[in-house]
Design a protein around this nucleic acid. Structure first.
Lengths: 279, 279
DNA sequence: TTCACCATAGAATATCTATTCCATTTCTCT
DNA sequence: AGAGAAATGGAATAGATATTCTATGGTGAA
């Protein structure tokens, strides 16, 4: 036994202890330390053998890790990981009550966080109900055929298009983030041809530049896929396929969770479609 | 084997099955049935012996109960009880299988969308549970005092920082999106002073540039707030306050919903704090 | 009442699991 | 560079675990 100090019996203390210790622990034990905090569920349910395999260490290393933290053996450590799940489930129903009642000790920031969380969840639920599989299929098909995908999104929508550009890039899909570097946006779009596709994202109040860029592309017969928030959006009549995404808002700040999920879906689905059609 | 019908693989279906069957089951098996629904955690974590003791039946009764529901043995049944606690997002193949069983005809894209939605929701739930109000308060306080807020985030994290930059801008909070225009990032940070604050966001695999920029700021005594995904992140030791946000992923693409909610919270809370302290 | 059948209890068993041990490698300090 | 200490991998082991088996007890039909 290498540690006479008493071992933590609850997960919160254990976590702190592991973080403190991790730095001056041998290589393999550090590896286990980080694995254990990254996959606590695995530790809770797995067997020594299965966890050792997943963390690419020897079973004995797990036992030594537990002992170095002051536990009698691995099983003893595992109990603490299990208690975390036990407690969590027990608290699950209480949590909502707790939040509603104990607004007293809630700070302003946590109230704001709660508001944004709720807005995100509402938005996701809403889109899941409304999203039309046929439209989605159509958009994926169009995008998959594109030579280059032009991404148009400014202000609030820019994080979405910049994410898509990053993800498309990693997936090896040619794309162009319009207006990314300085103000050459008009020029960027002027290269688009009917073989390409424009993906435009804009919400009220529609940024005029997004509209004019999309119009320019439309005039050149470039197929347009749009994500917007209303049938009356100026993007809707321009688009071959368009999605209505209404994000809930909190204090005037709209969530982006649903739009982002849709964006990720389009990205991955297009990549998947392409890899299938190549084979 | 007394039951050739396939056994439920998820807890919800199992629960229904047990309730249907409970009525016309032998005495001891009925007893086990009601115990299992009343103490699901016990079933998930216990051993055959310990559960048998708690439910006052014989170990063999538990095995027979599992078999009468169509499982191979008790361990097989126990897996389903464990899956209830294990917050696991189904992967693409499992999802398809699940939909096929329920006769829902779904397109690939909608399956992907479902996966991303679920990942987003799980991430939000997880963060809501873990987020420490005191830390949040501390971070807001630090950021509110900042002369200029430097936002550091590349690759996956760039959409987040770019959103914050946009929102801070609209709220009249001086900020600087590091590395936004071309590669002058090092120079950007070199202007930061201890009166400013750096907000750094990075997830595995940590972009080396984010780390080195944050280190540079740290060396100049600039207070650092970090959002990252593990206590072992290189950002954690540099930060005055740091948040652990673990995003669920679907098919290797991590959600950004939780990080984004936290980012929005910080943004709005800082604005709110400033407007209060001015009056 | 008696027979046949099913459920049950409890012991027996075969499997799996955590843990220990020791030879070998890797690190650390002089 | 070399000696000593620490850490590691992998096999051996002691213990626990789920499952099966069989004798017993109970229940309903003839």
């Amino acid at each position: 036994m290498m540690n006479t100090q008493e071992a933590p019996r609850d997960f919160a203390s254990l976590k702190i202890r592991i973080m403190e210790r991790a730095a001056d622990l041998p290589r393999r034990l550090t590896q286990v330390a980080s694995y254990s905090l990254e996959h606590p569920d695995e530790i809770a349910f797995g067997t020594v053998a299965s966890i050792a395999l997943a963390a690419t260490v020897q079973p004995s290393t797990l036992v030594r890790f537990a002992q170095s933290l002051g536990y009698q053996g691995f099983s003893d450590l595992q109990d603490v990981f299990r208690s975390r799940l036990r407690d969590r489930i027990l608290n699950y129903d209480e949590r909502l009550e707790h939040l509603r009642q104990h607004d007293i000790n809630a700070t302003k920031a946590t109230v704001i966080f709660g508001g944004f969380s709720e807005a995100a969840e509402k938005s996701l639920a809403d889109l899941r109900e409304k999203l039309d599989p046929a439209k989605l299929e159509e958009a994926v098909e169009t995008l998959a055929r594109a030579d280059t995908i032009y991404l148009i999104g400014l202000r609030r929508s820019f994080p979405i298009t910049s994410y898509m550009s990053y993800a498309f890039g990693k997936l090896g899909i040619r794309n162009h983030l319009v207006g990314a570097m300085g103000g050459l946006a008009q020029e960027d779009v002027s290269f688009a041809s009917p073989k390409d596709v424009v993906l435009a994202i804009s919400f009220t109040p529609y940024a005029s530049e997004t509209i004019s860029l999309t119009q320019a592309a439309s005039a050149k017969q470039v197929p347009i896929i749009a994500i917007t928030d209303s049938p009356f959006s100026p993007l809707a009549p321009l688009a071959k396929t368009w999605f209505e995404v209404t994000e809930a808002n909190f204090e005037g700040f709209r969530s982006m969770a649903a739009t982002l999920s849709l964006a990720m879906t389009l990205t991955v689905a297009v990549a998947e479609r392409r890899s299938n059609s190549k084979t």
